[in-house]
Structure formats: structure tokens, C-alpha cells
């Protein structure tokens, strides 16, 4: 049974005259946990931003269902909110989310009510990240875009966040687009993977089927080898 949510055809992104992504073609089914992986500079963030309409692209992008998107960008860290007196409650106010809705989602991600009146910039890293997940979910999206949601927290914290996301995703039939360069997460949580590389290699499919050593070599090692080669000379 296929329930195609998004069709991407001949998708190209060029920024300041430099081609970042070229000729991407794939389909995303409803309820997929799609991880976009690849080394630094391979265009993961650009890909997400252009799908969200934040960057210009050429090609076809077809949503078969009206997307209601929740977006957690890269670099949404605590430092960026310390300049303003913002409690967790205020954070939800910025999106005009009602208090009971906010509290419901905070408990969904395992946070207790008493952080509601604490300053968001001074929560622990893990708490802050969970709060952001609750913040994204509280607007009731049917599609999530997460750009390195665990890059600022340790591995254990990161794993818990992903288990949480997968559970919530399954129970609410969310389609999740997740950016990471962490291979463990791809295997543990993704239903599908889209890999990008600086040299134009790419793959799309079910992780266990397509992430062969050769493919991984193409995606990651080709870049690394290139540098090693230069150093050895």
C-alpha cells in the first residue's frame, strides 16, 4: 500500500552560482522516518531549507496532502535565546500555543510542569532539546523537519530524543524528515534514508538495503580519501 506524501522530481538548488544539489528524485510516504545523511557541506541543510521554501530551487515539489510543517532548524540552541528574558511558558506564547496544549506536550516529552516558569536559556541541554520537541509538536504538525536535533547534547540524551520522536511519530502518524551525520541513528530509527555527498554521490531507500559498504565509502570516504591523499603528498 503506498500513500505518497511528497514527490520530488528533478530537484536542483544553486546558491550564488554554485550548484549545491542537482537532479534529486524521490518520493516520501506518509509516516516515514526519513533521515537525510551525509558529511558536512553535502547540502543537507540546504535541502531541508529549499523544501521548506526558505531557499530558491528549480524542479518539481509536489505535496499530495496539505502539509502542516513543524520545523526545528540547526543552531536553535540555548545561547540564541539567552538575550531575552524568556521562560518556557513565553516560548510557547511566541507561537500562540495555549497553556494546556503546551503542558500536555511537555509531559509527552517527559518534562514536568515545574519547568514551565523557568528561563528557557538556562534549562539543562537535554531539557531544552526536549522542550523544543514539545514546542514543535504543540502546533500539531503532520510533518516534522528536524535539522541535527541532538547535535548539542550527549549520546545518551540524543538516543532518548530519537526514541521519543519515533514513538510520537508512530502514534500520531507523523512524517519525519531528520538531518544527521550520525550513522547509528540512521540504523536505529529511520525507515528510509537519503544520503548526499559533496561529490554528487547519493542514495535513497531503506537503510539496511542501500547502505552497503560501497555506498558508505562513496558518501563519506571519497571525501576523506581526497584529503588524506593531499596530506600524504
Amino acid at each position: 500500500m503506498s500513500n505518497i506524501l511528497l514527490e520530488v522530481k528533478n530537484f536542483n538548488v544553486t546558491l550564488d552560482g554554485i550548484p549545491i544539489l542537482s537532479d534529486l528524485n524521490f518520493k516520501v510516504e506518509e509516516g516515514e522516518f526519513l533521515t537525510i545523511m551525509g558529511p558536512n557541506g553535502s547540502g543537507k541543510t540546504v535541502f531541508v531549507k529549499s523544501i521548506l521554501g526558505l531557499l530558491p530551487y528549480h524542479g518539481e515539489l509536489k505535496w499530495n496532502k496539505k502539509p502542516k510543517i513543524g520545523y526545528l532548524p540547526q543552531g536553535m540552541n540555548q545561547l540564541s535565546v539567552r538575550d531575552t528574558p524568556l521562560t518556557v511558558k513565553d516560548f510557547f506564547y511566541l507561537k500562540k500555543i495555549k497553556q494546556e496544549e503546551a503542558l500536555k506536550h511537555l509531559s509527552l516529552v517527559g518534562l514536568s510542569n515545574d519547568i514551565f516558569n523557568k528561563k528557557a536559556g538556562y534549562l539543562s541541554g537535554g531539557e531544552f532539546q526536549r522542550m523544543l520537541i514539545a514546542w514543535v509538536l504543540a502546533s500539531h504538525p503532520n510533518i516534522l523537519f528536524l535539522d541535527e536535533p541532538t547535535s548539542t547534547i550527549d549520546i545518551v540524551g540524543g538516543k532518548t530524543i530519537y526514541s521519543l520522536l519515533r514513538d510520537i511519530g508512530q502514534s500520531q502518524n507523523l512524517t519525519i524528515f531528520n538531518v544527521t551525520h550520525d550513522l547509528n541513528i540512521v540504523y536505529a530509527h529511520s525507515t528510509h534514508v537519503l544520503c548526499l555527498s559533496r561529490l554528487g554521490h547519493r542514495c535513497y531507500g531503506v537503510p539496511e538495503e542501500i547502505l552497503t559498504p560501497e555506498v558508505l565509502h562513496d558518501i563519506y570516504k571519497s571525501d576523506i580519501k581526497f584529503y588524506k591523499h593531499e596530506k600524504e603528498n
Binding site: 526558505l54 532548524p73 540564541s80 507561537k95
Partner: peptide, 17 residues
């Protein structure tokens, strides 16, 4: 206020919203 403040914190999130 809430719109401008959200855009202050993260312009892309504000746009997606």
C-alpha cells in the same frame, strides 16, 4: 510582539509558521 520576537529568535521558524 510575538511574531517579531519569534523572528528574532529564529527567522526560518517564523517563516515556516
Amino acid at each position: 510582539y510575538s511574531e517579531i520576537m519569534l523572528a528574532n529568535i529564529n527567522e526560518d521558524v517564523a517563516k515556516v509558521e
